[in-house]
Design a protein around this nucleic acid. Structure first.
Lengths: 171, 171
DNA sequence: GAACGATTTTTGAAATGTCAAAGGTTTGGC
DNA sequence: GCCAAACCTTTGACATTTCAAAAATCGTTC
């Protein structure tokens, strides 16, 4: 390696450090955000066109589907990462559509438990199957090994973020 | 390795294939979505507490900040991935706060161009600096090499998704 | 130069989202 | 038994979001 070549490499490193190394976290965040928006919009569009449902409704029903005995609204709020007040309205509309049932248990009258109706279960399982297929389609060009790697590494990001929250979210 | 041990390994592989290999794309999506929500909420909270601003307003101003001569609302809509109707209201409120100015150019009176006011520029650059720091903090536990890798691989996901959209989004 | 089609933004209805405050209910001392 | 603190959900005020339809303007064609 000649002297000029080695100097060149050093320069590249410096330049790279200034351009690509800077704000890496910011750039990752912007890319995560835009990708998530893109996928969300596509899922929204398909849920609407093929099932007449919305994404928040789908998310909420997904939680209820795996807890057949139902969930308290507060628990639903935590799992869907939606505020309490928002859950109230969502469940209200789902109940009006006959997909969800609200029950107040005898033991504690502060609590409201939401659970899927039979119609809700049928409706959700059809959507869930389609939903899974959409994701496979959308990510079809990505090597499964990379999908796996992404799943693991984003887990690290999530964990780091969880440990550096200013607010109240702890688990 | 005994026969029973080797049989065990095979079982693990099979089980792993059935459990972890299945629905990999779905699981990646759920993790991306929850991580993005987590970070969004944290940024929202800090923008609100420290600057009295909202995240959509911040996003919109970010686009205007790097186009000092201003942007048409339709262009703003594309770049922020927000619908046209939504941009109208966002710009309206930002204008009421004196952060953004709306101008109709002489050449084409259908068009509305939004640009930051001096106050808007000052306000945004303070927020942007803080914003970048928050992200570094939140991702502090993640190896920079992994951040870099994630940025690249999520780019692949985004590209794959873009090529498998049912709707109208093409570029 | 009147009319038609394309472009751009706004509007309106409904759903989702946040936050803070208010309403009930329960529980644990006293 | 009663009161205060804690717990759970709802409410109310706004901001954001989507979609579709309407409004305004431009360009072109005849």
């Amino acid at each position: 390696m000649t002297e000029s070549e080695s100097a060149n490499v050093d320069l590249e490193i410096i330049v790279q450090g200034a351009q690509e190394g800077k704000k890496l976290e910011l750039r990752l965040w912007l890319r995560m955000l835009s990708t998530t928006k893109l996928i969300s919009q596509e899922i929204r569009r398909r849920l609407r066109n093929e099932f007449g449902a919305t994404l928040p409704q789908f998310d909420l029903m997904a939680q209820l589907y795996r807890e057949r005995e139902g969930l308290r609204l507060g628990e639903l709020s935590k799992r869907t990462m939606v505020t309490n007040g928002n859950v109230t309205g969502l469940v209200e509309r789902l109940e009006a559509d006959g997909l969800v049932l609200r029950v107040t248990p005898d033991g504690d009258r502060r609590v409201t438990v939401a659970k899927l109706t039979a119609k809700g279960e049928t409706s959700f399982s059809a959507m869930a199957a389609a939903h899974e297929g959409w994701l496979r389609d959308m990510m079809a060009d990505v090597d499964p090994a990379i999908v796996s790697e992404l799943w693991r590494d984003i887990g690290e990001v999530k964990s780091s973020v969880s440990n550096h929250l200013s607010g109240a979210d702890f688990e």
